[in-house]
Design a protein around this nucleic acid. Structure first.
Lengths: 247, 247
DNA sequence: CGATCGCTTGAGCAAAATCAAACCTCGTGG
DNA sequence: CCACGAGGTTTGATTTTGCTCAAGCGATCG
């Protein structure tokens, strides 16, 4: 069930059969199911293994002393929670389930063995980390410079494209298992304002979010409103020169 | 002149003499001087080498279509601009000088050789990247959840501590070669509001910024206002078990 | 069938943006 | 040595955006 991870990594370079089966094996050793709001790992914990999201959504988040919560990123199927975090003494943020999820727990030794054995995989993980960093930077821009409609439009563009990368869209729809309150904690907006912004985008026929299903009638139009430039997602097969020949 | 980089990495693990001299050598091959507002590397460029800041400040930034600019991070002496970016086809953001700076240009081959030869260095670079990522996440929180006084207080706490790590503070003062307009582009505030927030912090005797010199009379007090928790900077010598024995 | 969770609406308020102008400082050239 | 100009800082007045508070509505689930 590492299919989403494999799909994602193959946006960097085509993998060999051996690499794919090694990933599948690593992702099938130890599984864990969590319900919404259960945490995969807490701020302060010593990270010892790596978690791969197989199904459902999780998020990175941090809570301020006064209770305000900020969501720092979404983890969708195929995403790895804490790659190489084991270098650090403790987690500086928490990771929790947003929807019901299943995750694979992968010992750090397995990760090290995989990357030692397969340089292409190692580079693909690298690429993946760099894209994640770029997404994090983009969120700074989003929450600092864009006003609420642009901001929400941008977030939806990004999520839709990320989901499409791993085959989790259906035409111009996808599932966004996130409450309006959580959207607020993502974009630094109040729940009330999220609701009104959502209505505004709906009135403009740019976005329709109904019962967890997001529909984007015209992605190009939404991108214009959001001033969305997908360069930071590095979708252009940066590592294609490393492609494996096998099917 | 890799002294600042060495000081910083030694917050992770003590380096051997050989590691230090290898870093010194790598950082002395090719130097470059830039004036404020000159760019080290542009969004869209193909990254081919790595840049180490020897002196002065630079910043990562990105400009929106409509001209709004967001600063995504500051690079101070000892910081490496684009470690491993060469995996990507093109830069997704620009890096520009904030003050007059000198940078060392290091070919990616040298970086690869260094990390292959010295596992401790490799891990230290890892640690450094992870801390950088954590700083980026913290900026999301800062610009999304904190109001202007808290936000500015938090930024100053972070910068002061980062400068102290590399020995660039002087008692409770340090140099912050950044205009108020740039502070605005950092925190997502207008220049006018930056100015008023600065006055507010000064009136509370928490911060004094005069002619590029920042003075923090009582860092603890400022941290309280900022709800600043330094855990994300991972100052606790995570890699001390790898310390070299040599002086 | 009530309780809970999430969504929606309205009214008033607060934080920060915008606009416009003045002021200050420092380096440069007459 | 002074005048000028550019870049940076400061101030006041007004407007905008988004927040808070408060309440009602509508599913869904034991």
């Amino acid at each position: 069930m590492a299919i989403y991870l494999i799909r994602k990594l193959e946006h960097f370079a085509k993998l060999s059969n051996e690499e794919r089966t090694s990933l599948e094996r690593a992702a099938s050793l130890q599984l864990r199911q969590l319900n919404p709001r259960e945490d995969i790992i807490y701020e302060g914990d010593q990270p010892t293994q790596v978690h791969l999201i197989l199904n459902g959504w999780a998020c990175r988040y941090k809570v301020l002393e006064d209770g305000r919560r900020q969501i720092l990123g979404y983890l969708i199927p195929g995403d790895i929670c804490d790659m190489r975090m084991f270098i650090l003494k403790e987690m500086d943020h928490s990771i929790g389930a947003v929807s019901p999820i299943s995750v694979a727990e992968i010992p750090k030794e397995t990760i090290i063995a995989l990357t030692d054995a397969f340089p292409r995989l190692s580079r693909a993980f690298w690429w993946n980390s760099l894209v994640e960093d770029a997404i994090t930077r983009e969120w700074i821009i989003n929450n600092s410079q864009r006003e609420s409609t642009e901001r929400m439009a941008h977030l939806f563009c990004e999520l839709f494209i990320r989901l499409r990368m791993v085959g989790l869209t259906n035409g111009n729809s996808c599932e966004i298992p996130v409450t309006q309150a959580e959207l607020g904690e993502t974009m630094g907006l109040s729940t009330v304002h999220v609701n009104r912004t959502l209505q505004e985008l709906r009135a403009l026929n740019l976005v329709n979010l109904k019962g967890r299903i997001l529909t984007i009638p015209d992605l190009k139009a939404l991108q214009v409103v959001a001033m969305f430039n997908d360069n930071y997602l590095h979708l252009d097969r940066d590592g294609h020169a490393m492609d494996a020949n096998e099917g």
